[in-house]
Structures are given as C-alpha cells and as structure tokens.
Amino acid sequence: MTLLQAIGYFLVEAARSLLRAWRASAVAILTIALSIYVGSFVLLVTGNLIEATSAWQEDVRITVYLAETASEEDRRRVEQALAEPGWTGEIRRVSREEALQRFSRSFPRLSDLAASEDLALPESFEASLLVSADQEGLAVWRREIAALPGVEQVDDDREWLDSLAQLVGAIRSLGLVIGFGLLIAAAFTIASVVKLTAYLYLEEITVLRLVGATEFFIRGPFYMAGLLQGLAGGLIALVVLSLTRWSIAARAGDAFWRPLLVGDFLSPAAQAGLVLLAGSAGFAGAFVSLRRERLEAPSDP
C-alpha cells in the first residue's frame, strides 16, 4: 500500500470513527476550539494594541512648559537644548493664545472657561522625538531641560507608552499561557476520546491483526482522527473569532476600543499556525493515548 493510499484509508476510517462517536468527538473539537479561540483572541487584541502603540511611538513628543516668568533668553536656551542632541524633529513654539485655541477646539463644552480671564495656559515648546533617540540619554537630557531656568514642567509621551507596551506584553503572555493551558487540556480530551473510540474498534482491530495489518495501518486512522479533531477545532475557533470581530464592528460604533478588534485580523501565517497548532495538539493527544495501548480484544471463547 502506498503512502497516499494509506492516507486516503486513514481519512475515510477516521471520519467514520468520528461520526460513530460523534458526541465525544464534538466535545473534543469544542474544547480545542475554545483554547484556540482564547489564544487567537488575545493575539488579535494585543496585536492591534502593539500596532497602535508602535504608531503612537513614531509620533511621540516632548513638551516643555515655560514658566510665566521665562525670559526671552530662557526661551532661546530651551530651544537650543531641545535641538542639541539631534533626537528631535521639528521644534515648535506654542504661544498662550494658541494653547487656548487648542483647548477650545478639544473641549468645546468648556468654551466659557476658555473665554474667561481665569484660564491661563502656559506657553510651551513641542518637539517630535525621533524613534532613534537613546532611552537612557533621553532621560538625562529630559532632566537637564527640566532644570533650565524658566522651565515649569517637561512631559514626555514615551513614559506612558512604555508602560502601555509593558501592560500589553503582560496581557499577551497571560492570554497565551491560558490558551496554552487550555490547549493541553484539549489535547487530553482528544486523547480520551481517541482511546474510547479505539476501544469501540477492538473487534475490528483484532480482525485486522489476524489478516496481517501492520500497526501503522491499525493505528493510523486513530492518529488521523486526533489530527482531524484538532484541525476542526482550530478552524472553528478562527471562524468564531472572525464572527466576533464582525459582530463588534457592527455594534461598537466609535468606541475607543473598537480598533483593537476591528483593526487588522490575524495574518494568514498566524491563522495557519494556529490551525496547525490545534492539529498538532490533536495528533499528539491521539499518539500519547495509544502509545502504550496494545488494543487487544478478549480471546475467542
């Protein structure tokens, strides 16, 4: 028998055995689908979050707020300090009036406050930070600027973006650990289902042995059944994830978290990887479950 014929035979027999024990098979498939769904959901959300964080990091700015008492000399020194290390792109001076206009645009409901004399927004310098900026040097540089005369406060977007990136990394790790744990549990479920199915076939296995079937031929359909359950679980997980994304896109409106799910879907390589991972888990479960089983029926009376 050629390998191709054997694979064809395994497929047919595996499909038959899955149908024969369809309830148990369905549970195994759903268990593996759940684990892959959790893993792929985490990958999708954190992937989009990482994408967004990267985009924000490319647009990160340093803002130096000046004191009311800052002199023209102080302004010149600050501007010079911002330009000096070569870590900044465009440096822009924002006057009090412009700051007020921005405030009005950003918070139209607070226009009364903006019009009153009580709101005195500080003058500032804004500089875009280049991605190549050295992290450690940047911190020192920032402290030096903060210590310059006429400087009230220095804000750097990098701080919270770095915190966000760390949080996303932690969420991704935790999600993947949970997904992996569920995958192991699913593999054990498949192992149990395959063993159960194999015992339903003991009589036939005995006949196969008697007529001279090799162990490869006897066990192949069960390994194939594990593989098929895993692949089916992986595919179902991706379909449900896609439906989740579609459903959220339809209902989320302009919610701030919308892009996290509705942004890019998992890449084809990631999708294929997840389905293969599920298939491998199914195959491994089947292999482990039957590795030490002799699969022998009771002797003829």
Binding site: T2, L208, V211, A213
Partner: peptide, 8 residues
C-alpha cells in the same frame, strides 16, 4: 476485503 485493502 480487509486483506486486499491493507495490501493496497
């Protein structure tokens, strides 16, 4: 048909 099948 078991035997002929396993013999391909």
């Amino acid at each position: 048909g078991y035997l002929p099948r396993i013999q391909g």
